[in-house]
Design a protein around this nucleic acid. Structure first.
Lengths: 194, 194
DNA sequence: TATAAAAAAATGAATGTTCATTCTTTTTTT
DNA sequence: AAAAAAAGAATGAACATTCATTTTTTTATA
């Protein structure tokens, strides 16, 4: 195995350990020493890859966010009709939140916490543009309500975070039927009523 | 001022300081010493009122959650028609999230973080019953979609947390018009389409 | 190709700080 | 005068980060 690959593996192991430990204990209760142990690395080695703990968590956030948006748009292209495109993206996001639960949990925690730098937060938002473009198209065609992107996100996408969270907490199990119902609610909340 | 009142004041000051500091720095970065300083009390005094830091934050959570639900239902009574009752409660919750921003932020952070004991979390949920009863009535009358309470909460209420969060972050200002739009989206997402 | 010197990467232990909690003393209330 | 409440300082543990060594990898030479 090449030196470069080994470096990449080590870095990935650190990021993965960070996600898992922060999910279970929160940022404040995950010492660098535990992250190191879980990644099978010396604590000192972390500092060869990241400046410090804050940098580690910022970079982890940005990477997970990038993975999220890449996943969300993987089978979308902008020539699709608005409703088709939205359904596609919505389902991919739902998939991500339910299948890539660790990653999604981590994002939820970062997004509701002063754990992350404002700069990294901004960096993370960038890649959502295709969805915003789709909405703009929908508004112009009179298919989607003329609401701010924030409102549309709040009603069409954000509820999935809540559902993922309670599902993870074990109090509720989201099955195929629920998912279809959730989609209908999401779409109802932003579509123009005929 | 009586001894009891003085005790209450001191305890309230501690709870208030906890909320403010945790909002700004997160649980991990708010030392007991800072909480004590902000509440104008010796660090040792905190331990006369709370067992330890975890207990302080658990109790704070439960109190804020109780305040939230009390606020939400203050002008609701269960003889109201479903749609009227829902609008009333929704608006009170919106008010709380926007006017009692510190409290709402604190709850959002607690709800997306392993900061709080599972026991305290359960304790906090209890008081939401009137809303669940209203929804049950709405489902039976064919006014509200036959969805699980979790789904209804995810679409009708939870988006307000997201909107509060981004508003607090300064990236978006929620005005009267937005609020009415938000209500329409919330209601659209859970009402049965005629 | 084999070997050794140099460079890079990785390590475990050490350092200094921060912090939750407790202890002893002082102040306030009864 | 006794009891209760509060205080500030002390304690000891946990932790992020750095330091001095060791191990691994690369490069240069024969």
């Amino acid at each position: 195995m090449g030196k470069l690959q080994k470096s990449i593996d080590k870095r990935n192991a650190l990021v993965k350990a960070t996600i898992e430990l922060v999910n279970n204990n929160g940022f404040h209760a995950t010492p660098m020493s535990k992250i190191a142990k879980m990644a099978k690395v010396s604590p000192a080695t972390i500092y060869l890859y990241f400046e410090n703990k804050q940098d580690l968590v910022n970079k982890t956030y940005i990477e997970v966010k990038a993975k999220y948006t890449k996943y969300a748009f993987s089978n979308y292209d902008e020539t699709m009709p608005v409703e088709v495109g939205f359904k596609l993206i919505w389902n991919r996001i739902a998939d991500f939140k339910l299948k890539e639960c660790e990653n999604a949990m981590f994002l939820a925690q970062c997004d509701n916490t002063p754990m992350i730098d404002e700069v990294s937060r901004q960096e993370g938002i960038k890649h959502l543009q295709p969805l915003l473009d789709l909405w703009e198209r929908g508004r112009q065609d009179g298919i989607i309500k003329p609401l701010s992107d924030y409102l549309l996100y709040a009603y069409a996408i954000n509820p999935l975070s809540f559902l993922m969270m309670i599902q993870k907490r074990g109090v509720f199990k989201l099955d195929k039927v629920h998912l279809e119902e959730a989609y209908q609610s999401a779409w109802s909340s932003i579509k123009v009523c005929q």
